[in-house]
Amino acid sequence: MNSPANGAHGGPAKGIAPDLERRVGLVVDTLARWLALAGGLVLIALTVMSVISIVGRSLVGVSDFWPLSVMGPVTGDFELVEAGCAFAVFAFLPWCQMRRGHVTVDVFVSALGPRARAALTLAGNILLAVTAVLIAWRLWLGMLDKKAYSETTFILQMPSWWGYAAAMVGAVMFAVVSAYTIWRSLNEMLGDGERA
């Protein structure tokens, strides 16, 4: 049986600190998973809130029965959905990248060997990491701009930068995961090819 330090053929694993890369990968994978779960919980909460708001809108002025007469739409529901969805979208990106879930065109690379596929994946991961860092940087600047001008939402008067800050968590993690996947792909290219 191969140990983590050994390659698929029983020899020493190839690449740049492959043992450390796998240990870092476990930490990054766990963080990305928990962030994606948090994004899912936020979406569930937003869904429940939206249903309550829609039902409340339909019951306004319909009944004099006390429990129904106090029902109404959730104040600022659109603002909450906007901020919550921004967080959720960015919360899912790291998990998708970690699990190789982004769209690929396998028709062109299916004839290539595992190392060649790993080299193409490495190139894609480099481009995605650059994009992730660029997105995080621009999101950071947007957040600072919203904070500097003390911009708030219309109904709840919630500071607009809060939504940006929530999204920043996922954007930074996306950049970290993208950087890690470069290391993973490099080791796969230098080793036995892409792992399952």
Rank of each mutant, 00 (worst) to 15 (best):
E21W: 09
E79N: 14
V107P: 05
W162M: 09
A45D: 05
A196I: 11
G15N: 07
M189K: 03
D19Q: 11
G193L: 07
F92E: 05
G25H: 11
A166K: 03
I182M: 06
G39T: 12
L20I: 12
A17H: 04
N2A: 13
I52F: 09
D19N: 12
G10I: 10
V28L: 03
L120E: 00
G72P: 14
L122C: 04
L127M: 12
P18Q: 06
R184E: 05
Y149W: 05
D29W: 11
C96L: 14
P4T: 13
L190Q: 04
D145A: 14
N2T: 14
A38Y: 08
A86Q: 07
M158Q: 03
A32W: 13
T153G: 08
R138G: 04
N187C: 11
T30K: 14
Q157T: 10
P4H: 13
V133P: 00
W95D: 02
V130Q: 02
T181F: 01
A119R: 05
E151V: 11
L41R: 10
N6L: 11
L43C: 12
P94K: 10
W183D: 00
L93Y: 13
A83I: 15
M158E: 00
M71V: 12
L35Y: 14
V62A: 08
R33M: 02
V55I: 15
H102K: 05
E21D: 04
S63D: 07
A171Q: 01
L26V: 14
A119W: 02
D145R: 14
M173F: 15
C85S: 11
C96I: 15
G15E: 02
A8Y: 06
K146A: 08
A196W: 04
L128C: 00
A45Y: 12
G76F: 13
P94Y: 11
A165E: 02
I54Y: 06
E151K: 09
F174S: 00
R99Y: 06
N187R: 12
A148G: 13
D106F: 01
L190S: 03
L41M: 12
W161L: 00
R195W: 01
H102Y: 04
P18D: 03
N125H: 03
V70M: 10
G7D: 13
P159A: 04
F174H: 01
L43M: 14
P67V: 03
R57P: 03
W95K: 13
A136C: 07
I54V: 15
M71A: 15
L43A: 07
Q97H: 11
A83F: 10
V89Q: 05
P18S: 07
A148T: 14
T121Q: 03
G101Q: 12
R115G: 01
L41V: 15
G39P: 12
G76N: 10
Y149Q: 01
V105L: 08
L127T: 13
L120T: 08
W140I: 07
D192Q: 10
L139I: 08
I126P: 08
L35T: 15
A91S: 06
T121A: 03
R195C: 00
L43T: 15
S110I: 07
V105W: 07
D106S: 09
P4L: 13
W183A: 01
L93D: 00
L31Y: 13
T181D: 00
I44R: 06
F92V: 15
L144P: 00
A119V: 09
G142F: 09
G11P: 14
A118M: 01
W34M: 03
V105F: 10
